[in-house]
């Protein structure tokens, strides 16, 4: 039980750090990473608290694995959106700058 509590406490600290970072950081990519740290913390809590006295309980393990799959998918999706937004902004900047886009007569 004590080992489980160590994992859960570490997870709680990670989740808190991640949330702090999410609030103070502005760049979406950093925010996405911060959310991943929160997620990792929650998975540690889930695994740590769900750990039985001697044997490992399969239910929390299955939940953690599913959760990681969901987190990976969402991170990839978020990163793709951030890239798309950066491209769109670069295109707008190039079009509005005199030296980008079409040369100003």
């Amino acid at each position: 039980m004590v080992t489980g509590h160590v994992y859960a406490l570490t997870g709680a600290i990670l989740a808190g750090l991640g949330l702090f970072a999410f609030i103070i950081l502005r760049h979406p990519l950093r925010q996405l990473l911060a959310i991943n740290v929160v997620g990792a913390g929650i998975f540690l809590i889930l695994g740590g608290l769900g750990r039985g006295p001697d044997a490992t309980d399969p239910l929390p393990q299955a939940l953690v694995i599913t959760g990681i799959v969901v987190a990976v998918a969402l991170t990839a999706f978020g990163a793709a959106m951030i890239v798309r937004l950066a491209e769109a902004r670069a295109a707008t900047n190039a079009a509005t700058r005199p030296d980008g886009g079409k040369p100003v007569p």
Partner: peptide
């Protein structure tokens, strides 16, 4: 999800 984790533990 954190709420779910606490319920699993409890």
């Amino acid at each position: 999800l954190l709420g779910v984790a606490l319920l699993v533990g409890r």
